[in-house]
């Protein structure tokens, strides 16, 4: 079973020509297959003050902030029962069922399995996930957020007997061990580290943007080998479905430099742009299922963080 992203194409290498990296990755797969996998990440402490109910309610909030619903719920489908198509240069991925159904969902997983999926990009049986599932961002999630999300998914979501749909991938993308090479190149596991020189609001915004919301997965150009261009995070990208995820750095001409914090916060709440237009496409889903459910403080924190990024002059091709 492969999980999927919360935004279409999040984490997916962006163009067919970039498939050229695959032979190298295959070589890597061979070279690294004998390398021991990372040690199991220790389960973090849970806030002892939180009651189960509070934790579960917070878990639902994490689900929204993580944008999970978009990819794990088909249009007009059962909630979180999977089936949403995610286009990529390698074929079509289908978001899997993450309801607590023991056979078709993740009902027979342990919390450690769930944590490992998010933080390491590995399934309970040990295989590697395609980065259509943005574990590259979720690896930064706080342990207590994962725990709360797990509690919510297991206790409040209706189990749905909906079988996962197989991905329809091009031949060269079906060889899953190649993902070891991809991860070696592009996956840096580890929790979010707050910057003590920045405000609490900035740090919250950074966490929401980089870890939970995984905004940069769609809003950044990618390297030839399909990883994020770390020097141009947030500078925008053309997505495999043809839409453009625009530059969200504060460059005045190519980014959102003319947007104030309130414009960004309002956009994440209602989808209205600075000039009165309304988002459609995949960002409308992100807003409907995700950011519109956040508190206004959290939307403002994201705005503060984005406004503080270095402006990058760049327009996606």
């Amino acid at each position: 079973m492969t999980s999927a992203a919360t935004e279409p194409v999040a984490g997916v290498p962006v163009s067919r020509r970039r498939a050229a990296w695959l032979p190298a990755a295959l070589l890597f797969a061979g070279l690294t297959a004998l390398t021991p996998v990372q040690a199991e990440i220790a389960i973090g402490e849970v806030d002892p003050a939180a009651s189960d109910e509070e934790r579960i309610a917070y878990g639902e909030y994490v689900l929204r902030a993580g944008g999970c619903v978009t990819c794990h719920t088909a249009k007009d489908g059962e909630f979180l029962a999977g089936g949403r198509a995610i286009e990529s240069p390698f074929g079509v991925f289908y978001g899997p069922n993450i309801t607590p159904h023991p056979e078709y969902g993740i009902g027979d997983w342990s919390e450690a399995d769930f944590r490992r999926a998010l933080q390491e990009g590995r399934s309970p049986d040990g295989h590697h996930y395609y980065p259509a599932f943005p574990y590259t961002a979720y690896t930064r999630m706080r342990d207590e957020d994962i725990e709360a999300l797990w509690a919510y998914l297991q206790s409040k979501v209706e189990p749905v007997a909906e079988e996962n749909r197989s991905h329809e991938l091009d031949w060269f993308a079906r060889f899953r061990p190649a993902l070891i090479g991809w991860k070696w190149l592009h996956f840096q596991p580890g929790r979010f580290e707050p910057d003590p020189d920045q405000s609490e609001q900035w740090n919250r915004g950074a966490y929401l943007t980089l870890a939970l919301g995984h905004c940069m997965e769609c809003h950044s150009p990618r390297t030839r080998t399909g990883g994020l261009e770390l020097g141009r995070l947030g500078a925008g990208s053309r997505l495999p479905d043809g839409d453009v995820a625009p530059n969200i750095t504060p460059d005045r001409d190519t980014g959102i430099g003319r947007w104030g914090e309130r414009h960004i916060a309002r956009y994440l709440e209602m989808g209205i742009t600075r000039d009165g237009d309304f988002a459609g496409g995949s960002m409308a889903d992100v807003i409907d299922h995700g950011t519109s459910h956040l508190t206004s403080e959290d939307r403002r924190a994201i705005a503060v963080y984005l406004r503080a990024l270095d402006p990058i002059e760049y327009e996606p091709e």
């Binding site: 043809g242 839409d243 309304f278 988002a279 459609g280 496409g281 995949s282 960002m283 409308a284 807003i287």
Partner: peptide, 11 residues
């Protein structure tokens, strides 16, 4: 507006 753009407008 958004519902219509979602289904019927390229973004």
């Amino acid at each position: 507006c958004q519902a219509c753009h979602d289904d019927f407008r390229r973004d």
